[in-house]
Design a protein around this nucleic acid. Structure first.
Lengths: 335, 335
DNA sequence: TTGAAAGCGTTACCAA
DNA sequence: TTGGTAACGCTTTCAA
């Protein structure tokens, strides 16, 4: 299927009665061209609706780096804040950031594949169950499994969870539940258990609830906890989205926050400041995360030697570059 | 400055002892190659850390379309929802979506310029005061001034504002203020005035407050309205972000929502469902907006004839393609 | 099954 | 001030 012929620099050159290099000079504001000639070329270009072929430009100039951002959904505020920071960090390096956010639809893999062909590297996380082949450097972020990707930005949740729980204890709470994400106890949840044990606080399985990582999941989790009829004066949530869902669930049940039940989240999302009362949280600096991710991309990209993709070879994972970001407690004064 | 020599297909060919076309065949899973040869080529490519040059690929295959999304900040949930929908719509067409979100910093123009070179078209809005030249098709969204761009997606706020106000009146409200955005009465505000007049409701300048379009702006606006000591039982906000800010401002002043003062927003953002009580709003389908925007881009892109950029020529604006999306009232039951 | 040659549209370098 | 020639790295005919 022969591509429809587009107007090229040669068409402009012909119409303007000059050579193509002269067209280049005229259109790129380069020195060494007579104003009259330039005007003539510009006019011809405009008349023809000429637009330079970016691929050809990139080829000859050295194509700039393009990073793909792989996220489940930009409607999740965590990812949109991350995208915002990555966009800035990428722009600062002269890199482009392409959105690879095609959600969990059935056509996901089909939509994803072409996008992956456009990027020099990938940042984010492959949706669970995606059957696409990644053959570019891949930096994961806060990836618990660490079975995929060539490098990772870790977040020190050990510190984060302890900061959150210390805050709850310091403010007089004793019966602290945890709303966890997924089907198995997450690493954060294990830290939670350790902390309770070390602090001499009561723990039971009834204090934990595991739900889908969404607002509605948080709402449901709160209801579940209340239904259990256990003593409960505080809730630690796996992240802010769940925490805000929990706040809604508690409010619906008539519980006052934080007087009856305190809620603490993790992430430090902007949206935590919009709800009432404002959400106390363990904030991770997503600017730092973005910067660390792009540094890792840079490293992988310049590392042209040997096997850039250990995980693809089936051999034992080689050194996996890693940067770690440490969250800090963010207490938001409500009203 | 000679670019550092990267490993090309020829290096692989040399190492594998084949010609470069054979390398292409091996690496692109094309038929007509002996398995043994393929393995040898693949091994050589991996050993060299070979990665195909995308620009060269694009050049020869016909580069796919890349659209730039120009937004003030992805941290504004309106834009992140828009970005999400545009990303999907673009992926469905096999297009890429590049983020051009560099905010309002002082280096903005410097960061923006390189990004604009990578796109075939632009969707969104140029930040006020940006001094960059756009020389690709540009589709604006809900742009009041309509002085920039080659095509636009309009939103019928006339319908939206009337729907919102009708709802307030139907639910028994009479003293309806408006939190407007900007420094001059917006088009939405003019509809508000008309509606009040037609409905025989009292209007005064005291009922209007104009603030910066942000959450804090909304908080401040609520405080301002309350300070005026006017009768007030409902507030119409220019958009959801302002509305949610207003909710917080009202809550801080001890007003109950919606019993003391009802609040209604416009946009239908997801975040409206997270706050308590949930925000009633006039929702615009951002999937439709995104689809309309890309259709317009498609139109502009295929319109290779004549002057594709009327606004740049200084001549009278020619036909400006336009699609309009109509919002609908979204009443969210508050749990 | 493999290889040689011909572009793809642009910019860079050097000579006129 | 201009134009010719040579890359840029890849894919796609067409022959061998």
């Amino acid at each position: 299927m022969p591509r429809p012929r587009t107007t090229t620099i040669l068409d402009v050159a012909r119409d303007a009665g000059v050579s193509r290099q002269t067209v280049t000079r005229a259109l790129n504001d380069m020195p060494g061209i007579a104003p009259a000639t330039r005007d003539r070329v510009v006019a011809a270009a405009r008349a023809l609706g000429y637009r330079p072929n970016r691929a050809a430009q990139s080829l000859v100039k050295g194509s700039g780096t393009t990073v793909g951002l792989l996220v489940e959904s930009l409607r999740n505020p965590y990812f949109s804040e991350l995208a915002s920071e990555l966009g800035r960090a990428a722009a600062a390096r002269g890199w482009g950031l392409i959105l690879c956010d095609v959600g969990y639809g059935s056509e996901r893999d089909a939509l994803l594949a072409p996008l992956l062909r456009r990027v020099d590297a990938l940042v984010g996380d492959l949706p669970a169950g995606a059957a696409v082949e990644v053959d570019v450097p891949f930096v994961t972020i806060d990836n618990a499994e660490e079975t995929v990707g060539d490098a990772t930005v870790g977040i020190d949740h050990e510190v984060g969870v302890r900061a959150a729980l210390s805050h709850l204890v310091a403010t007089g709470h004793r019966d602290i539940a945890m709303i966890d994400s997924g089907t198995e106890p997450s690493p954060r949840c294990l830290v939670y258990r350790s902390f309770l044990a070390e602090a001499g606080l009561a723990w039971s399985e009834q204090l934990e609830v595991r739900v889908e990582e969404s607002h509605d999941g948080g709402v449901a989790a709160a209801a579940t906890l209340l239904d259990r009829g256990i003593a409960l004066d505080a809730v630690l949530a796996f992240n802010d989205v769940l925490a805000i869902g929990a706040m809604k669930g508690l409010a619906r049940a008539g519980r006052r926050i934080p007087d009856d039940v305190a809620v603490i989240g993790m992430d430090g999302l902007d949206v935590g400041a919009l709800v009432t009362p404002e959400l106390t949280t363990v904030a991770t600096d997503r600017g730092d995360v973005a910067e660390a991710a792009l540094e890792l991309v840079d490293t992988l990209l310049s590392d042209r030697s040997g096997d850039g993709h250990p995980q693809a070879t089936g051999s034992a994972p080689a050194h996996r570059p890693r940067r770690t970001v440490t969250p800090r407690l963010l207490v938001r004064a409500s009203g």
